[in-house]
Design a protein around this nucleic acid. Structure first.
Lengths: 146, 146
DNA sequence: AATAAAAACTACTAAATCTATATACTTTGT
DNA sequence: ACAAAGTATATAGATTTAGTAGTTTTTATT
């Protein structure tokens, strides 16, 4: 399961992706629109900013906006930033690898092999789906649900 | 990430799958071979037994064995039993569905849609990979690594 | 019948993680 | 000067994870 933090992070990015050519969006507004606890969101946005995904401006009239094009922010980046590994086993992770302490021979571990397959399948989707894709999906769904 | 519980459960099932036509295997032996804390493993095996995956026999000469063929035990069953949902979002889960509290319209949520794709990809692999497959994978890997 | 082996059951606990909340500080526009 | 807005750090409560301990029940063997 994703942490709420990651879910909120994606929601915030989508909200900002919809706000592209407008003035920066305030934390309070994002929190209200997306129904996310404000102080929690504050921390999350800060993480996203420090990772270079967001631009922020302090003071009156300040707020947040995307620092990259929505087409260039992929789910996998967000997930790795806030949740860590994509893989379901430490020994099957590309970016957060570490050995299973109890494992005696990783090279011949069938469980690991199976979960590497899962990782690759997951990674394919999360690595290809951008914030822009999510917004596009929502636009399609909106029309379909008229 | 899988919990250690689930990882240990799969390891135990694989160990028992290798022990097919032999007398039942004791907890201590599985714990030693797979380097799993014994009392923790005890609880896990009990869960697997109560779910019908294992047969157990008490008393001297007792122990555990598989209650199904290794070809009939799939990773997804184990994972759901010990970890719960396969999906990364509650609203994208088939067996453990529940609404995201903050969500205002699930039908048009693009995030949900993306994570349903992830779930389906994951499910395909976990639902097709059996304990027998894992053992087979390991046999192949053993030969390849000679 | 006694003994020992082994699983079953119940309860508990320590540590980590998650989900926030609180407080104080800094920057910026008017 | 003042208010709006982000920055930073600390902390607290709840939940989950991972594991331990102790006792009871069942079974095979002697």
């Amino acid at each position: 399961m994703l942490s709420k933090k990651t879910k909120y992070a994606i929601k915030a990015l989508v909200a900002l992706g919809r706000n592209l050519d407008k003035p920066p969006m305030q934390i309070s507004k994002i929190a209200e629109e997306e129904r996310i606890p404000k102080k929690f969101l504050e921390q999350i946005l800060l993480d996203l900013r420090n990772a270079g995904l967001l631009y922020s401006k302090k003071g009156a009239g300040g707020g947040y906006s995307l620092n990259k094009k929505p087409e260039e922010i992929f789910l996998v980046q967000v997930l790795r930033l806030t949740d860590g590994p994509v893989a379901m086993l430490p020994c099957a992770s590309l970016n957060f690898y570490h050995k299973c302490e109890e494992c005696t021979d990783e090279k011949t571990c069938g469980i690991r092999k199976a979960f590497i397959e899962v990782r690759d399948a997951t990674l394919k989707i999360l690595g290809e789906t951008s914030i822009a894709d999510i917004i596009e999906k929502e636009n399609v769904l909106l029309i379909e649900n008229l």
